[in-house]
Protein backbone atom coordinates (compact mmCIF):
# COMPACT_ATOMS: atom_id res chain seq x y z
CA UNK A 1 0.00 0.00 0.00
CA UNK A 2 2.72 2.42 1.04
CA UNK A 3 4.68 1.53 -2.09
CA UNK A 4 1.64 2.33 -4.17
CA UNK A 5 1.25 5.74 -2.54
CA UNK A 6 4.92 6.56 -3.10
CA UNK A 7 4.62 5.44 -6.71
CA UNK A 8 1.52 7.59 -7.21
CA UNK A 9 3.27 10.61 -5.71
CA UNK A 10 6.29 10.13 -7.98
CA UNK A 11 4.08 9.77 -11.03
CA UNK A 12 2.14 12.87 -10.03
CA UNK A 13 5.35 14.89 -9.67
CA UNK A 14 6.55 13.67 -13.05
CA UNK A 15 3.23 14.58 -14.64
CA UNK A 16 3.32 18.06 -13.13
CA UNK A 17 6.90 18.47 -14.28
CA UNK A 18 5.98 17.55 -17.86
CA UNK A 19 2.97 19.83 -17.78
CA UNK A 20 5.15 22.70 -16.61
CA UNK A 21 7.56 22.08 -19.46
CA UNK A 22 4.72 22.37 -21.92
CA UNK A 23 3.50 25.57 -20.27
CA UNK A 24 6.99 27.06 -20.30
CA UNK A 25 7.48 26.10 -23.92
CA UNK A 26 4.20 27.71 -24.89
CA UNK A 27 5.25 30.81 -22.99
CA UNK A 28 8.49 31.02 -24.95
CA UNK A 29 6.50 30.91 -28.17
CA UNK A 30 3.98 33.57 -27.18
CA UNK A 31 6.36 36.07 -25.63
CA UNK A 32 3.49 37.81 -23.89
CA UNK A 33 3.65 39.75 -20.66
CA UNK A 34 1.71 37.05 -18.94
CA UNK A 35 1.80 38.68 -15.53
CA UNK A 36 -0.26 41.62 -16.78
CA UNK A 37 -3.97 41.03 -16.34
CA UNK A 38 -5.75 40.98 -19.70
CA UNK A 39 -9.00 42.84 -20.27
CA UNK A 40 -10.97 39.62 -20.03
CA UNK A 41 -9.28 38.70 -16.77
CA UNK A 42 -9.98 42.13 -15.33
CA UNK A 43 -13.56 41.71 -16.43
CA UNK A 44 -13.85 38.28 -14.85
CA UNK A 45 -12.23 39.33 -11.56
CA UNK A 46 -14.40 42.44 -11.35
CA UNK A 47 -17.50 40.35 -11.84
CA UNK A 48 -16.35 37.78 -9.31
CA UNK A 49 -15.83 40.63 -6.83
CA UNK A 50 -19.42 41.74 -7.37
CA UNK A 51 -20.66 38.18 -7.08
CA UNK A 52 -18.68 37.66 -3.92
CA UNK A 53 -20.02 40.89 -2.45
CA UNK A 54 -23.61 39.88 -3.13
CA UNK A 55 -23.11 36.36 -1.78
CA UNK A 56 -21.24 37.68 1.26
CA UNK A 57 -23.98 40.11 2.26
CA UNK A 58 -26.70 37.60 1.47
CA UNK A 59 -25.01 35.00 3.65
CA UNK A 60 -24.65 37.60 6.41
CA UNK A 61 -28.43 38.01 6.59
CA UNK A 62 -28.95 34.29 6.08
CA UNK A 63 -26.73 33.47 9.06
CA UNK A 64 -28.57 35.98 11.21
CA UNK A 65 -31.86 34.44 10.19
CA UNK A 66 -30.69 30.89 10.76
CA UNK A 67 -28.62 31.32 13.90
CA UNK A 68 -30.26 34.25 15.62
CA UNK A 69 -32.20 32.00 18.00
CA UNK A 70 -29.03 30.16 19.00
CA UNK A 71 -27.80 33.25 20.77
CA UNK A 72 -28.08 33.51 24.54
CA UNK A 73 -31.71 33.92 25.66
CA UNK A 74 -32.79 37.40 26.83
CA UNK A 75 -30.95 38.51 29.95
CA UNK A 76 -32.22 37.22 33.29
CA UNK A 77 -30.88 40.11 35.31
CA UNK A 78 -31.83 43.73 35.67
CA UNK A 79 -28.63 45.29 34.32
CA UNK A 80 -28.51 42.54 31.68
CA UNK A 81 -31.57 44.02 30.00
CA UNK A 82 -29.68 47.28 29.54
CA UNK A 83 -26.73 45.39 28.11
CA UNK A 84 -28.99 43.54 25.68
CA UNK A 85 -30.60 46.76 24.57
CA UNK A 86 -27.26 48.49 24.11
CA UNK A 87 -25.87 45.48 22.30
CA UNK A 88 -28.85 45.41 19.98
CA UNK A 89 -28.48 49.04 18.93
CA UNK A 90 -24.73 48.77 18.60
CA UNK A 91 -25.15 45.67 16.44
CA UNK A 92 -27.62 47.51 14.23
CA UNK A 93 -25.15 50.36 13.85
CA UNK A 94 -22.13 48.23 13.05
CA UNK A 95 -24.15 45.97 10.75
CA UNK A 96 -25.22 49.05 8.83
CA UNK A 97 -21.62 50.24 8.47
CA UNK A 98 -20.47 46.73 7.60
CA UNK A 99 -23.11 46.26 4.90
CA UNK A 100 -22.74 49.71 3.34
CA UNK A 101 -18.95 49.79 3.22
CA UNK A 102 -18.62 46.24 1.91
CA UNK A 103 -21.36 46.87 -0.65
CA UNK A 104 -19.61 50.01 -1.89
CA UNK A 105 -16.21 48.27 -1.90
CA UNK A 106 -17.32 45.29 -3.98
CA UNK A 107 -19.41 47.48 -6.24
CA UNK A 108 -16.42 49.75 -6.94
CA UNK A 109 -14.25 46.68 -7.46
CA UNK A 110 -16.70 45.61 -10.16
CA UNK A 111 -17.60 48.96 -11.64
CA UNK A 112 -14.04 50.22 -12.07
CA UNK A 113 -12.50 46.97 -13.29
CA UNK A 114 -9.83 47.94 -15.74
CA UNK A 115 -9.64 47.77 -19.48
CA UNK A 116 -7.39 49.19 -22.17
CA UNK A 117 -9.72 52.01 -23.14
CA UNK A 118 -10.28 53.32 -19.67
CA UNK A 119 -8.36 56.14 -18.10
CA UNK A 120 -8.45 56.64 -14.36
CA UNK A 121 -9.35 60.03 -12.94
CA UNK A 122 -6.53 61.95 -11.32
CA UNK A 123 -8.11 62.73 -7.98
CA UNK A 124 -5.84 62.95 -5.01
CA UNK A 125 -7.43 64.94 -2.26
CA UNK A 126 -10.59 66.56 -0.99
CA UNK A 127 -10.40 67.96 2.50
CA UNK A 128 -14.17 68.46 2.71
CA UNK A 129 -14.83 64.78 2.06
CA UNK A 130 -12.19 63.75 4.56
CA UNK A 131 -13.61 66.11 7.14
CA UNK A 132 -17.01 64.52 6.51
CA UNK A 133 -15.82 61.02 7.23
CA UNK A 134 -13.95 62.17 10.28
CA UNK A 135 -16.98 63.90 11.75
CA UNK A 136 -19.58 61.19 11.02
CA UNK A 137 -17.78 58.39 12.88
CA UNK A 138 -16.82 60.82 15.64
CA UNK A 139 -20.41 61.79 16.31
CA UNK A 140 -21.63 58.19 16.14
CA UNK A 141 -18.94 57.29 18.67
CA UNK A 142 -20.02 60.08 20.97
CA UNK A 143 -23.39 58.32 21.33
CA UNK A 144 -21.83 54.92 21.82
CA UNK A 145 -19.48 56.20 24.50
CA UNK A 146 -22.18 58.16 26.32
CA UNK A 147 -24.63 55.27 26.58
CA UNK A 148 -21.95 52.67 27.19
CA UNK A 149 -20.41 54.56 30.08
CA UNK A 150 -23.77 55.39 31.63
CA UNK A 151 -24.57 51.70 32.05
CA UNK A 152 -20.98 50.82 32.92
CA UNK A 153 -21.07 53.24 35.83
CA UNK A 154 -24.38 51.80 37.03
CA UNK A 155 -23.18 48.21 36.74
CA UNK A 156 -19.88 48.77 38.52
CA UNK A 157 -21.12 51.13 41.24
CA UNK A 158 -21.13 49.73 44.80
CA UNK A 159 -24.42 48.23 45.88
CA UNK A 160 -26.93 50.75 47.22
CA UNK A 161 -29.12 48.11 48.86
CA UNK A 162 -29.19 48.06 52.62
CA UNK A 163 -28.80 44.32 53.02
CA UNK A 164 -27.72 42.80 49.76
CA UNK A 165 -27.07 39.08 49.72
CA UNK A 166 -23.33 38.45 49.68
CA UNK A 167 -22.06 35.32 47.97
CA UNK A 168 -18.43 34.40 47.61
CA UNK A 169 -17.37 32.32 44.64
CA UNK A 170 -14.06 30.65 45.31
CA UNK A 171 -12.26 29.17 42.31
CA UNK A 172 -9.63 26.51 42.06
CA UNK A 173 -8.52 24.05 39.42
CA UNK A 174 -11.12 22.87 38.39
CA UNK A 175 -14.21 23.61 40.45
CA UNK A 176 -16.06 26.28 42.35
CA UNK A 177 -17.09 26.66 45.97
CA UNK A 178 -19.83 29.10 46.94
CA UNK A 179 -19.81 30.61 50.43
CA UNK A 180 -22.75 32.34 52.10
CA UNK A 181 -22.56 34.32 55.32
CA UNK A 182 -24.52 32.69 58.16
CA UNK A 183 -26.95 34.40 60.49
CA UNK A 184 -24.48 37.19 61.32
CA UNK A 185 -24.57 38.32 57.68
CA UNK A 186 -20.76 38.48 57.58
CA UNK A 187 -18.26 36.35 55.72
CA UNK A 188 -15.42 35.16 57.93
CA UNK A 189 -11.87 36.24 57.10
CA UNK A 190 -9.66 33.83 55.22
CA UNK A 191 -6.02 33.05 54.62
CA UNK A 192 -4.71 30.64 52.05
CA UNK A 193 -2.29 29.18 54.62
CA UNK A 194 -5.28 27.72 56.50
CA UNK A 195 -6.46 25.67 53.54
CA UNK A 196 -6.74 21.96 54.27
CA UNK A 197 -9.15 19.11 53.55
CA UNK A 198 -11.82 20.19 56.02
CA UNK A 199 -11.23 23.89 55.37
CA UNK A 200 -11.33 24.22 51.59
CA UNK A 201 -11.59 28.01 51.43
CA UNK A 202 -8.99 28.75 54.12
CA UNK A 203 -11.28 30.21 56.81
CA UNK A 204 -9.46 31.76 59.73
CA UNK A 205 -10.40 29.54 62.69
CA UNK A 206 -9.83 32.33 65.18
CA UNK A 207 -12.45 34.52 63.54
CA UNK A 208 -15.87 33.80 65.09
CA UNK A 209 -17.79 35.36 62.20
CA UNK A 210 -16.69 32.55 59.90
CA UNK A 211 -18.08 29.70 61.97
CA UNK A 212 -21.60 30.01 60.61
CA UNK A 213 -20.50 30.51 56.98
CA UNK A 214 -22.16 28.05 54.63
CA UNK A 215 -20.02 26.23 52.08
CA UNK A 216 -21.71 24.91 48.96
CA UNK A 217 -20.48 22.75 46.09
CA UNK A 218 -21.88 21.62 42.72
CA UNK A 219 -24.79 24.07 42.64
CA UNK A 220 -25.67 27.30 44.37
CA UNK A 221 -28.95 29.12 44.75
CA UNK A 222 -29.89 32.79 44.66
CA UNK A 223 -33.24 34.45 45.21
CA UNK A 224 -35.09 36.26 42.44
CA UNK A 225 -35.56 40.00 42.65
CA UNK A 226 -32.86 40.54 45.26
CA UNK A 227 -29.51 42.08 44.56
CA UNK A 228 -26.64 39.63 44.94
CA UNK A 229 -23.15 40.98 45.52
CA UNK A 230 -20.61 38.42 44.41
CA UNK A 231 -17.09 38.35 45.75
CA UNK A 232 -14.58 36.36 43.77
CA UNK A 233 -11.36 34.78 44.92
CA UNK A 234 -9.03 32.17 43.51
CA UNK A 235 -6.62 29.87 45.24
CA UNK A 236 -4.27 28.96 42.38
CA UNK A 237 -4.42 30.58 38.95
CA UNK A 238 -6.62 33.22 37.34
CA UNK A 239 -10.12 31.99 36.63
CA UNK A 240 -13.07 33.96 35.37
CA UNK A 241 -16.58 33.63 36.74
CA UNK A 242 -18.82 33.85 33.70
CA UNK A 243 -22.58 33.72 34.17
CA UNK A 244 -23.69 34.38 30.61
CA UNK A 245 -27.46 34.31 31.21
CA UNK A 246 -27.09 37.16 33.67
CA UNK A 247 -24.59 39.05 31.49
CA UNK A 248 -22.11 38.84 34.33
CA UNK A 249 -18.40 38.20 34.21
CA UNK A 250 -15.47 38.89 36.50
CA UNK A 251 -11.99 37.43 36.84
CA UNK A 252 -10.96 35.57 39.98
CA UNK A 253 -7.41 36.60 40.74
CA UNK A 254 -5.21 34.98 43.40
CA UNK A 255 -4.22 37.54 46.00
CA UNK A 256 -7.19 39.85 45.56
CA UNK A 257 -10.96 40.02 45.89
CA UNK A 258 -13.02 41.15 42.91
CA UNK A 259 -16.74 41.85 42.88
CA UNK A 260 -19.74 41.97 40.59
CA UNK A 261 -23.35 42.55 41.52
CA UNK A 262 -26.63 41.82 39.79
CA UNK A 263 -30.30 41.31 40.48
CA UNK A 264 -31.80 38.14 38.94
CA UNK A 265 -35.20 38.77 37.39
CA UNK A 266 -36.36 35.28 36.43
CA UNK A 267 -36.39 32.06 38.38
CA UNK A 268 -35.06 28.89 36.77
CA UNK A 269 -38.66 27.74 36.50
CA UNK A 270 -39.74 30.92 34.72
CA UNK A 271 -36.81 30.63 32.33
CA UNK A 272 -37.86 27.09 31.43
CA UNK A 273 -41.24 28.47 30.37
CA UNK A 274 -39.78 31.30 28.29
CA UNK A 275 -40.56 30.68 24.59
CA UNK A 276 -37.06 31.68 23.48
CA UNK A 277 -35.51 29.25 25.94
CA UNK A 278 -37.94 26.51 24.98
CA UNK A 279 -37.04 26.91 21.32
CA UNK A 280 -33.36 26.76 22.19
CA UNK A 281 -33.83 23.68 24.37
CA UNK A 282 -35.76 22.01 21.57
CA UNK A 283 -32.81 22.44 19.22
CA UNK A 284 -30.41 21.29 21.90
CA UNK A 285 -32.39 18.16 22.73
CA UNK A 286 -32.85 17.29 19.07
CA UNK A 287 -29.10 17.34 18.65
CA UNK A 288 -28.58 15.37 21.87
CA UNK A 289 -31.02 12.74 20.65
CA UNK A 290 -28.94 12.37 17.48
CA UNK A 291 -25.85 11.83 19.57
CA UNK A 292 -27.69 9.39 21.83
CA UNK A 293 -27.54 11.65 24.88
CA UNK A 294 -30.21 12.21 27.52
CA UNK A 295 -32.48 15.23 27.02
CA UNK A 296 -31.81 18.12 29.39
CA UNK A 297 -33.78 20.96 30.92
CA UNK A 298 -32.64 24.54 30.98
CA UNK A 299 -30.34 25.53 33.83
CA UNK A 300 -28.39 28.63 34.63
CA UNK A 301 -24.69 27.90 34.76
CA UNK A 302 -21.43 29.37 36.00
CA UNK A 303 -18.50 28.74 33.64
CA UNK A 304 -14.80 29.40 33.89
CA UNK A 305 -13.83 31.81 31.14
CA UNK A 306 -10.11 32.29 31.66
CA UNK A 307 -7.72 29.59 30.56
CA UNK A 308 -6.79 27.75 33.75
CA UNK A 309 -5.45 24.32 32.81
CA UNK A 310 -6.32 20.94 31.36
CA UNK A 311 -9.95 20.82 32.54
CA UNK A 312 -10.71 24.48 31.93
CA UNK A 313 -13.40 23.38 29.49
CA UNK A 314 -15.33 21.61 32.24
CA UNK A 315 -15.15 23.89 35.25
CA UNK A 316 -18.79 24.54 35.93
CA UNK A 317 -21.36 25.01 38.63
CA UNK A 318 -25.12 24.98 38.34
CA UNK A 319 -27.03 28.10 39.43
CA UNK A 320 -30.61 27.90 40.67
CA UNK A 321 -32.71 31.04 40.86
CA UNK A 322 -35.83 30.65 43.00
CA UNK A 323 -38.26 32.65 45.10
CA UNK A 324 -36.95 34.11 48.32
CA UNK A 325 -38.98 31.61 50.34
CA UNK A 326 -37.56 28.62 48.47
CA UNK A 327 -34.13 30.11 48.75
CA UNK A 328 -34.34 30.54 52.52
CA UNK A 329 -35.54 26.97 52.81
CA UNK A 330 -32.58 25.75 50.75
CA UNK A 331 -30.13 27.86 52.71
CA UNK A 332 -31.35 26.35 55.98
CA UNK A 333 -30.40 22.89 54.76
CA UNK A 334 -26.78 23.85 53.99
CA UNK A 335 -24.07 22.92 56.45
CA UNK A 336 -22.09 25.56 58.25
CA UNK A 337 -18.31 25.56 58.39
CA UNK A 338 -18.35 24.67 62.08
CA UNK A 339 -20.37 21.50 61.59
CA UNK A 340 -18.20 20.44 58.65
CA UNK A 341 -14.90 21.17 60.40
CA UNK A 342 -15.82 19.56 63.71
CA UNK A 343 -16.59 16.21 62.08
Amino acid sequence: MKLLIILAVILFILAVHQLMKVVEFARELRKTKEWEPTDSENDLMGKLMLLFGIAFLFLFFYQIDKWYDKALPPAASEHGKHIDELLFWNMILISFVFVVVNAVLFYFAYKYRGNKNRKAVYYSDNSKLEMLWTIIPASALAFIITFGLKYWNEITAPSTEKNPLIVELYAKQFDWTARYPGKDGKLGTTDFRHIEGSNPVGLDTTDQSGFDDLLVKNEFHIPVGKEVVFQFRSRDVIHSAFMPHFRAQMNCVPGMVTTFKFKPTKTTKEMREDPHVQNLMKQINEQRAKEGKEPVEFDYVLLCNKICGASHYNMQMKIVVETEQEFNEWLRQQKSFKTVASK
Binding site: P37, E41, M45, G46, V101, G114, N115, W133
Partner: peptide, 16 residues
Protein backbone atom coordinates in the same frame (compact mmCIF):
# COMPACT_ATOMS: atom_id res chain seq x y z
CA UNK B 1 -11.07 52.76 4.98
CA UNK B 2 -12.92 55.58 3.23
CA UNK B 3 -9.72 56.79 1.60
CA UNK B 4 -9.17 53.31 0.16
CA UNK B 5 -12.68 53.34 -1.27
CA UNK B 6 -12.15 56.76 -2.82
CA UNK B 7 -8.88 55.59 -4.33
CA UNK B 8 -10.71 52.75 -6.09
CA UNK B 9 -13.47 55.12 -7.22
CA UNK B 10 -13.19 55.94 -10.93
CA UNK B 11 -10.01 53.92 -11.14
CA UNK B 12 -8.90 51.53 -13.83
CA UNK B 13 -8.37 48.50 -11.63
CA UNK B 14 -5.77 46.06 -12.91
CA UNK B 15 -6.56 42.72 -11.30
CA UNK B 16 -3.20 41.30 -10.39
Amino acid sequence: AFNYLTTLWKGNIQYT
